[in-house]
Design a protein around this nucleic acid. Structure first.
Length: 958
DNA sequence: GTAGGGTTAG
């Protein structure tokens, strides 16, 4: 009955080779027939013995023989099946397992055997055929504890802990008694889902049922606690164990500490294990190596490496992988690669570890290259590979590589993996392709918290701030829990939109949900700062308990942005006093504070500090230094720094071009641009803005127009309104007002306030009332909230003598509750910054200053023929009053103070928040000549270097 | 009569 139903390829055709089992004594190659003829003279191995040898084919033959009645071994058919099924399970031989299953059914009568059914469940579970296992299990008329254990084990080994726990619950509900073999399985499931509460409950139950002293159960408990992040609980159990001769127990506790990132504890206990004489196995090495993941533990890692080599065993793939990962984590990709190359058995983990090692260590190009090479050699990719490769693509913003990976993911169906999809969202966001990102989101069946967060951040990073907030609302509507990361991105969006109320609302949400951490608190400081609410920013800053360098930098930047450079400087000092070391970002923001205050000395101090601290002159730091020196009136220092930088990027070139332009050196700016092109550095929008600005401030009208063309045609960069405004300014200065107006009208984009105010400025200088009125009307309708615009308009009317219109504009300002910012000049004398308002009498040395000013005017009138030009006093008052107003302009007070207090012949550097007026300009020229001082004035628009009666601006001063 | 625990990459 039974013999015929075994598949032919496994049962041997009688003619070809009637080979019964290969006989142990068969060195002589006895014809197999002898076994038949002399059955009693040779001991035939039992099915059990054959199965234990592990050869599937022989096992099948033996089974065939058994059913043919040719096997002398005494055992029941159940038993015979059982041994072969176990071998199938061990070899994960699903096909053969199914054949046995079929054979059992067709040969009848054995279906009811609970024993065999359980064996089959076990076999299917081991082979990963969970559905077959479940079907058999469900159809069982009767179950034993073995059946339950086999099914739970099947779920756990196929990575379905939830189902295992569910089954456990059913089992308990049905009142089935759990045994000592159930616990390890179910505890593993608890560890997998990280359910400490349930794990502890089961621990209690194990205690009650007396299983908690079983070695297997203890090990499983230690692992469960470790995986549920209760390392202390794991340790408590370990300490309670009297007998510590089980290597698994040691492995579990070492692994617990490694997992918890407690390398010192892990390695201490590892040493203890070595001392106690328990022999180590591969798991021990893997767990110990896992602990050495920081560069500071590299020596220990290398010691372990040496010990492993000395143990002379063949390098197990898990151990080799752990070594590879250890080196990669310690930043030693060279050593990692060496391991990789000598490995005989590589698996996908080895490959993925190399790949992610490259990515983690910032070798993105190497990662892509490794990926390409391995593709050629036929390496199979899985989700982990894709995640790494997508990470490298997004870091390098290599859209094509990212899309290649996307295509691969679609082909293999790996795009259905949520983590792969999340990496795709991030990659497209980082490559600036929001539409592709949206496509990925739409194609996802299910988005998790990370997907939503990544998408929100993606919009925020790509200027889609409103959309980011919309998506956040959508996520909340979907019932997605917001975490700190998500809120961080939301704050970023609110900040960019300067929506102070949204920031406050989000702040409330953070407090309500208890999400506040250092990162979010720092982001809040930044958000309030960006929304110009310095009071709330500072309040938030004060609340932070363990301020780190980011907290301090956020507050410093908030002050810098609010124009409170002095406060920023003070805070920088407090930060250093509190023992927090400034990083690059902190230095950049403090350099910006020094620049805004024109505090050259402070700026130089910072420069000195960063040299002493060994910061490398590159990137944003180099650009900030160039900018700081330029804005502190010493472009020669900018050049020095600029020349020292090895890799000059677009931003650095742009800063240097801007530095030249600011100081009226248009020729240098255009030379720099030509050099930049020769060195193949691609200019961007801002580069051209700096260049056009330089041209307009040096009267290079034709060059400026030429560069606008180069920008558009050669580089295919669409100009911003600011670029057009520069050209308007350029034409306006050359008194080509009508041309400027035509240019504005011919712009391909709608001219905005910046453009109109450029035209208005030109009308002011050249006293063109008609065009001025047109520009004024446009400007005030486009930006009615900006007080600066009213000042521009009123100055234009004042310059053309229309005092009635001046009065009307003032009235309008009052009605709308706007105030113009008062004129202010400041100067750094010794270590202090002194500021002066117009007609200011608040300075402690005020009397001396006015006395000095009177003396200066006396000298200039006598020696230099100075006469005040009252048309620059933009007030409708008597002539005499106008002269008084001019004489007490803030920059003159600052210069008088500098002449009083600074050493003979030292250069004087003044900064003013508004533009220098024509009369002051003439006045300062004369001071530079008759008092023999170099005077550098930085106004709202540019720098003026006064020297021996001349100014670097070539009188293009307005 | 059966079987069970510890390990790697993002």
């Amino acid at each position: 009955m039974a013999s015929s139903t075994l598949p032919s390829h496994l049962s041997s055709p009688p003619t070809a080779s009637p080979n019964g089992p290969m006989l142990k004594t068969a060195n002589l190659q006895l014809p197999l027939r002898t076994a038949k003829f002399e059955p009693k003279s040779i001991k035939i191995p039992s099915i059990k013995e054959i199965c234990k040898q592990g050869n599937l084919k022989e096992a099948f033959q033996s089974l065939t023989n058994y059913f043919a009645g040719q096997n002398a071994a005494h055992c029941s058919s159940d038993e015979a099946y059982s041994w072969v099924l176990e071998l199938c399970a061990d070899k994960k031989a699903l096909v053969e397992g199914r054949q046995i299953h079929a054979h059992i059914i067709t040969s009848n009568g054995y279906l009811d055997s609970v024993f065999l059914r359980t064996k089959l469940v076990f076999m299917y579970g081991k082979c990963g055929a969970i559905l077959d296992a479940k079907k058999l299990f469900d159809e069982m008329p009767r179950r034993t504890i073995f059946s339950w254990n086999a099914m739970i084990g099947a779920y756990v080994s196929t990575g379905q802990p939830w189902e295992a726990l569910e089954l456990y619950r059913d089992m308990r509900m049905l009142g089935v008694d759990v045994d000592a073999r159930t616990f390890p399985c179910i505890l593993k499931a608890c560890g997998m889902v990280g359910d400490l509460k349930l794990g502890t409950e089961i621990h209690g139950y194990a205690f009650k049922s007396g299983c908690d002293s079983n070695g297997f159960v203890v090990n499983a408990l230690v692992s469960m606690y470790a995986k549920c992040e209760d390392t202390v609980g794991a340790r408590r159990l370990f300490d309670r164990m009297q007998e510590r001769d089980d290597v698994v127990l040691w492995n579990s506790i070492v692994s617990a500490y490694s997992r918890d990132r407690k390398p010192i504890e892990a390695l201490t206990i590892f040493r203890e294990m070595q001392r106690s004489g328990v022999s180590m196995n591969t798991y021990t090495y893997v767990s110990a190596l896992q602990a050495c993941e920081e560069p500071s533990f590299r020596n220990l890692g290398m010691e372990l490496h040496a010990a492993i080599l000395k143990s002379n065993d063949q390098l197990h793939v898990y151990v080799a992988n752990a070594l590879l990962v250890m080196y990669a984590r310690c930043g030693r990709m060279r050593e990692a690669a060496q391991i990789y190359h000598i490995m005989v058995d590589k698996d996908s983990v080895s490959w993925n570890s190399m790949l992610s090692g490259f990515v983690q260590n910032g070798f993105y190009n190497e990662a892509l290259q490794f990926f390409q090479e391995s593709l050629v050699s036929g390496q199979k990719l899985d989700q982990a590979s894709l995640i790494s490769i997508l990470g490298a693509s997004s870091k390098l913003e290599k859209l094509l590589n990212g899309m290649e990976a996307h295509t691969f993911a679609i082909k293999t169906g790996l795009n259905a993996d949520i983590q792969v999809a999340n990496s795709l969202i991030d990659m497209y966001a980082k490559c600036g392709r929001v539409n592709y990102m949206e496509h990925v989101c739409r194609s996802m069946l299910d988005m998790d918290q990370i997907s939503w967060t990544t998408a929100i951040a993606g919009y925020a990073q790509n200027n889609g701030h409103m959309k980011a907030l919309d998506v956040f609302r959508e996520a909340q509507a979907e019932g997605v829990e917001a975490d700190a990361m998500m809120i961080g991105s939301v704050l970023l969006a609110c900040t960019s939109l300067k929506l102070i109320n949204h920031v406050k609302e989000t702040h409330g949400y953070i407090l309500k949900r208890g999400l506040a951490d250092l990162v979010l608190n720092n982001t809040l400081v930044d958000a309030y700062g960006e929304c110009s609410n310095i009071a709330l920013a500072s309040q938030m800053f004060e609340v932070i308990e363990n301020k780190d360098v980011v907290s301090w930098t956020s507050m410093i930047s908030a002050y810098v942005d609010a124009g409170l450079g002095t406060e920023a400087m003070k805070l920088f000092c407090s930060m250093k006093e509190s023992g927090v070391e400034p990083d690059t970002v902190a230095l950049i923001s403090i350099l910006s504070a020094a620049a805004s205050l024109s505090a050259l000395k402070k700026g130089k101090e910072v420069h000195g500090f960063l040299i002493r601290q060994g910061f490398i002159l590159e990137g944003s730091l180099a650009s900030s230094l160039v900018d700081m020196y330029a804005r502190c009136g010493t472009p020669e220092n900018s050049s020095k720094v600029f020349n020292l930088v090895k890799d000059k990027d677009t931003v650095l070139w742009t800063c240097m071009i801007h530095a030249s332009g600011m100081h009226g050196n248009g020729k240098l700016a255009t030379d720099l641009f030509n050099r930049m092109e020769m060195e193949s550095v691609r200019p961007d929008h801002v580069t051209f803005l700096a260049l056009l600005y330089a041209c307009s401030h040096s009267g290079m009208t034709d060059e400026g127009q030429k560069y606008l063309e180069i920008m558009r045609c050669k580089y295919n960069i669409a100009p911003w309104p600011e670029h057009y405004a520069c050209v308007v300014d350029l034409l306006g200065r050359a008194n080509r007002l009508e041309e400027a107006y035509q240019f504005v009208k011919s712009m391909p984009i709608e001219p905005n306030a910046v453009v109109w105010s450029a035209l208005l400025g030109a009308c002011h200088v050249h006293s063109n009332r008609e065009l001025g009125e047109i520009a004024a009307r446009k400007l005030l309708s486009l930006e009615p909230e900006n007080p600066g615009n009213y000042v521009l308009v009123s100055n234009m009317f004042a310059a053309t003598g229309r005092w009635d219109a001046v009065e009307q504009v003032r009235e309008l300002m009052r009605e709308r509750g706007l105030k113009k910012s008062p004129a202010c000049s400041w100067i750094e004398i010794r270590d202090e910054v002194h500021s002066f308002m117009a007609r200011d009498k608040s300075h402690p040395q005020s009397d001396q200053i006015y006395e000095k000013l009177a003396q200066i005017i006396e000298v200039l009138k006598k020696e230099g023929g100075y006469t005040p030009q009252t048309k620059y006093a933009l007030h409708n008052v008597e002539e005499e009053e106008k002269i008084k107003i001019l004489y007490s302009h803030s920059e003159r007070l600052a210069i008088a103070y500098a002449l009083l207090e600074s050493p003979e012949g030292a250069p004087i550097r003044v900064t003013k928040n508004l533009r220098v007026c024509g009369d002051c300009h003439a006045f300062i020229k004369l001071v530079s000549k008759f008092f023999d001082r170099e005077i550098v004035v930085r106004d709202a628009s540019r720098f003026h270097h006064f020297h021996q009666g001349n100014c670097s601006c070539g009188d293009f001063w307005e």
